[in-house]
Amino acid sequence: MSQEKLNFIVVDDSKLDCFIAEKIIQNTGRCASVSTFQQANDALIYLRTMASNDIPTIIFVDIQMPVMNGFEFVESFETLPAERRSNFYIYMLSSSINENDIARVKGYSSVKQFLNKPLTSSTINHVLEQF
């Protein structure tokens, strides 16, 4: 099994949760780079302007954020040109146990999976098995 290095992007309004995600990602040993954003809009600007990515990039995005929430982020992401969107894998995270939110995640083709918070080393290792 190839142990390819990956890029990571974390979008979460909680500084603390960004920190946790960053540390856990670094601990996996699969991390080529990790960028964290507390505002979804900043992450979008980054995605629009970043140089093309030749290695897979995993995006962890929180659902409940003020100003631009996780769903709005994914909707904006889906309007990007197809070549910009390739090689990105989005995972949505939430602390809510709201069935509607979980069902809504399934409606987005660009979202791979819904994950419960907190992001732990075992959750992330499970995700990484697919890459």
């Binding site: 540390k23 856990i24 601990n27 602390s95 809510s96 146990i97 709201n98 907190p118 080393s121």
Partner: peptide
Amino acid sequence: AYSATHDMRGPILSVLGIIDL
């Protein structure tokens, strides 16, 4: 009910995350 799960569980889950770390 919707917000409470987020705003009250949020900090608890963060702390659990840090404990794991």
